[in-house]
């Protein structure tokens, strides 16, 4: 059964099926935008947590680590509460739009970005802190050096953040509504097609999802080796 579905899936990919490609395009777009915004918000938080010592720092690090495993449906539920007509952001009319999915994905991505980047930045901060002080470098120069030294860890955080966002289904389903051609992503399409019994389409989308995920990681590994 799986082998014939696999063959049919390849046929679907090669036929240029519009619905399939629309879902792929939206997933990539949403995934990249949400990852970039999660990184823009998360990296400064990770940098602050790794370089500053203040009361409650350890608790914050623990919270971000714990939230890495936050179920996407919980984020979906929270986002729904905020964006529905009765919610505090209801007047923006974002529910069931790609923007709502991006918002939910950012909420999912930030803890992953912060927790993984913070771990790498903290390791390097301990290693370079005294050298930065002996060189009398400014805080800005010290932070730039810290980011440069931890770049592989930060790339790992970006990769994990993209993976978390790209492969989630709960928030996309609840905040996007799985509307064909508008908010249907690869993951929500896989869920729908499988429940409809369209196993071939589900396998085709699953293969593409996996390929993109692997390609992003290969690209990051290649960059690491350079």
């Amino acid at each position: 059964m799986f082998l014939s579905s696999f063959k049919n899936a390849i046929g679907l990919i090669l036929s240029g099926d519009t619905a399939t490609y629309q879902a792929i395009a939206l997933s990539i777009k949403v995934g990249f935008i949400a990852t970039v915004i999660a990184a823009i918000i998360g990296l400064p938080i990770a940098l602050m947590l790794s370089t500053k010592r203040f009361r409650g720092r350890a608790l914050l690090v623990t919270i971000f680590n714990a939230f890495m495993g936050l179920p996407s449906v919980v984020v979906g539920l929270l986002g729904y509460g905020l964006l529905s007509h009765r919610g505090i952001l209801g007047m923006l009319n974002l529910l069931f739009t790609p923007y709502a999915i991006i918002m939910g994905d950012i909420m999912l991505g930030i803890p992953t970005m912060v927790a993984i980047a913070e771990s790498s930045l903290s390791d390097y901060h301990d290693k370079i802190n005294e050298t930065v002080k002996t060189l009398s470098l400014s805080k800005l120069d010290g932070n730039i050096l810290l980011i440069k030294e931890s770049i592989y860890g930060i790339m790992g955080a970006l990769s994990a953040c993209f993976g978390r966002i790209f492969e989630e289904v709960g928030a996309a389903m609840m905040l996007g509504g799985n509307i064909m051609g508008i908010t249907r992503t690869m993951t929500t399409a896989i869920a729908l097609e499988t429940t409809k019994g369209e196993f071939d389409r589900g396998v085709a989308l699953g293969m593409i999802l996996l390929s993109i995920s692997i390609s992003v990681n290969i690209a990051l590994q290649w960059f690491k080796k350079r």
């Binding site: 370079i128 005294e130 002080k133 002996t134 060189l135 009398s136 400014s138 050096l145 030294e149």
Partner: peptide
């Protein structure tokens, strides 16, 4: 005080990613 008066080289000094020149230049940056 450090900027004006004192610097130190540790027993196992840390060198940053890059070339020897990049690292030496850091001594002139401050």
């Amino acid at each position: 005080i450090r900027k004006q008066f004192v610097t130190m080289v540790h027993q196992s000094p840390y060198l940053f990613r890059g070339t020897a020149k990049d690292n030496i230049m850091l001594g002139l940056k401050s």
